[in-house]
Amino acid sequence: MKRNIIIVILLMLSSFFGSCITLRPKHIFPPDNQVEGIHLCKGMEDSGDLLKPVDIQSDFTSKDDHINCFIKLKDVSIKIRLRWKWYSPDKKMFRDTGDIIVNQNEEYLGVVTAYDMLQLTPESKNEGQWTVVVFMNDKFIGRKTFQVRPLKLS
């Protein structure tokens, strides 16, 4: 009896797996997304060759006079153009860096770090949700949103 059950189960399994398993899967070449991370931060540590974001956050107050948008890229071997666009809470462009050339000499760089800084002017109304988008070679690669809150008076 048990032999019959085993035969039936083996038949089921062989008919199922025989039609779908390939022992040599087609190799797919790994993709080329070079963006390792985009962060908003208050400060930047510049020790050595690479930059490091300090105080990563998405909530700021109108007392913060500047906000940094930091980007980390990997495996850069050609000249690239980076561009930051900052949008105020009314969804209008507040700042555009234009294209910034990186790796002009077209060397291989394992890691590339860069950032742009938004200066908040105290006289303008800054409170609300801001947006910063980053483009590489005219291609959208990432967006971050952040809040600027009014300073609490204690």
Partner: peptide
Amino acid sequence: VGLYLEGIESIGFK
């Protein structure tokens, strides 16, 4: 598809 088990490429499936 190719199946990766703990980062190691193993068998494929149609």
